[in-house]
């Protein structure tokens, strides 16, 4: 009885969210899809899609877009994991301080944050002044893929760290202490106790960071240059300069398809790993 009731209750629990998105996400989504196919202008056609997929330029942009998002996700995972471990174990004021440090970049508007990066990484910036003092050659990384990636990791780090930390919060330090007392070396403790517990947090964080990175265009616009083009920036150009809503919608649908494909791939890998 309990399992049948649980199943029914389980199904009911998802209804409000599904209904809400069915109304306010699927509706607009269909509208955009119709626009991209020219349905609202009396014509039907896949012309915009043919234009995108029949052109190596757009395919290259798609590749760069995915590579940037994947790189940022990977970097955020590597940088963020230790942070999450430390955050989850911190208590009291230390925890508050670490949490503040993490979300601070999100509170500084992107245009002035960029000014900050310019002062730090500029040709006459702080980093180069330090390098010069040490007798090292100057870096010129402003307005490049590197600059974009650094700026994105900087601001997306909280999404990775808090996702992982929230799964580690339920880790009882007693487990680790027990493992240590029993003589397990630190790496084994990590591999057998900590890593499995945080795996889904890392997956969740990666999904969020990937989606945020692949959709960002303001950072790409202000930290990049003419060579750094991504799909959402093309969408922005089509909307603001060319005022071509149907083509912008088609580009948006392509981006949607790419992200969904990555999610699907991830789910498959996760399922296989679990099996």
């Amino acid at each position: 009885m309990s399992s049948a009731a649980g199943r029914r209750l389980g199904a009911l629990l998802a209804v409000p969210a599904v209904a809400f998105l069915a109304a306010f996400f699927v509706g607009p989504l269909l509208l955009a899809l119709a626009e991209s196919l020219g349905l609202t202008r009396g014509a039907t056609g896949t012309g915009h899609y043919a234009r995108i997929f029949g052109d190596t330029y757009y395919l290259e942009v798609m590749r760069d877009t995915v590579l940037l998002a994947a790189g940022v996700t990977g970097a955020a995972l590597v940088v963020g994991y230790p942070y999450a471990l430390i955050l989850a174990r911190a208590r009291g004021a230390a925890k508050a301080a670490l949490l503040f440090l993490l979300v601070a970049p999100l509170l500084v508007t992107v245009v002035v944050r960029t000014f900050g990066w310019m002062i730090v990484f500029g040709r006459r910036g702080l980093v180069n002044a330090a390098l010069g003092a040490l007798g090292l050659p100057a870096l010129d990384i402003l307005n490049s893929w590197t600059a974009i990636a650094v700026a994105l990791v900087h601001v997306l780090l909280p999404f990775m760290v808090l996702s992982i930390a929230s799964t580690l919060e339920s880790l009882d330090p007693a487990f680790e202490e027990a493992a240590a007392t029993l003589g397990a070396p630190p790496w084994r403790q990590f591999l057998h106790v900590v890593a499995p517990l945080s795996r889904d947090g890392a997956v969740a964080g990666s999904i969020l960071v990937f989606a945020l990175a692949i959709g960002s265009f303001v950072t790409v616009m202000v930290m990049g240059d003419n060579r750094t083009m991504v799909l959402p920036l093309l969408v922005y150009q089509q909307l603001t300069v060319a005022s071509d809503w149907p083509f912008a919608a088609a580009l948006g649908m392509v981006l949607l398809a790419i992200v969904l494909a990555v999610f699907w791939l991830q789910a498959r890998i996760a399922r296989r790993a679990a099996a």
Partner: peptide, 11 residues
């Protein structure tokens, strides 16, 4: 903004 940022930062 980025234009004046660059100019003001003497980039």
């Amino acid at each position: 903004v980025e234009a004046l940022n660059m100019f003001a930062a003497k980039e």
